[in-house]
Amino acid sequence: MPRKLPQITNDSSAFWQGGESGLLMIHRCNTCRRFFHPPAPICPSCGSLDVGPEATSGRGTIATYTINQQAWTPELTAPYVVAIVELDDQPGLRLLSNVVGLPPEQVRIGMQVQVAFEQHEDIWLPLFKKAE
Rank of each mutant, 00 (worst) to 15 (best):
M1I: 10
P2Y: 08
R3M: 12
R3T: 07
K4M: 13
K4Q: 14
L5W: 09
L5E: 14
L5F: 12
L5D: 11
L5G: 11
P6G: 11
Q7W: 12
S12Q: 10
S13V: 11
S13Y: 06
A14W: 01
A14Q: 01
F15D: 11
F15E: 10
W16H: 00
W16G: 03
G18P: 00
S21V: 00
S21F: 00
S21T: 03
G22R: 01
L23F: 00
L24S: 01
M25Y: 02
M25H: 02
I26F: 09
I26W: 09
H27M: 12
H27L: 05
H27F: 05
R28A: 03
R28E: 00
C29M: 05
T31F: 02
C32K: 09
R33D: 07
F36S: 07
H37I: 01
H37D: 04
P38R: 14
P38F: 14
P41S: 07
P41Y: 01
P41Q: 04
C43P: 05
C43S: 08
P44F: 06
P44D: 08
C46W: 06
C46I: 06
G47N: 11
S48M: 10
S48R: 08
L49R: 10
L49Y: 04
D50W: 06
V51D: 02
P53W: 02
P53D: 05
E54K: 14
E54S: 14
T56M: 01
G58W: 08
G60Q: 12
T61N: 14
T61R: 15
T61S: 15
I62G: 05
T64C: 13
T64Y: 03
Y65T: 04
T66K: 05
I67R: 07
I67F: 02
Q69V: 00
Q70S: 02
A71V: 13
W72R: 12
P74V: 11
P74K: 14
P74N: 11
P74W: 08
L76S: 15
T77K: 14
A78S: 13
P79H: 09
P79W: 09
Y80F: 15
Y80H: 14
V81G: 08
V81C: 06
V81P: 06
V82N: 09
V85Y: 03
E86K: 04
D89M: 07
P91M: 04
G92Y: 03
G92E: 05
G92Q: 05
G92F: 01
G92L: 00
L93T: 05
R94T: 12
R94H: 04
L95I: 09
L95S: 02
N98P: 01
V100E: 09
L102R: 06
P103F: 02
P103H: 13
E105V: 02
V107R: 06
V107Q: 06
R108T: 13
I109D: 00
G110E: 10
M111I: 10
Q112E: 04
V113W: 04
Q114C: 11
A116Q: 15
F117A: 07
Q119T: 14
H120Y: 14
E121T: 12
I123T: 14
W124H: 15
P126Y: 13
L127S: 02
L127T: 03
K129Q: 15
K129A: 12
K130C: 02
A131D: 11
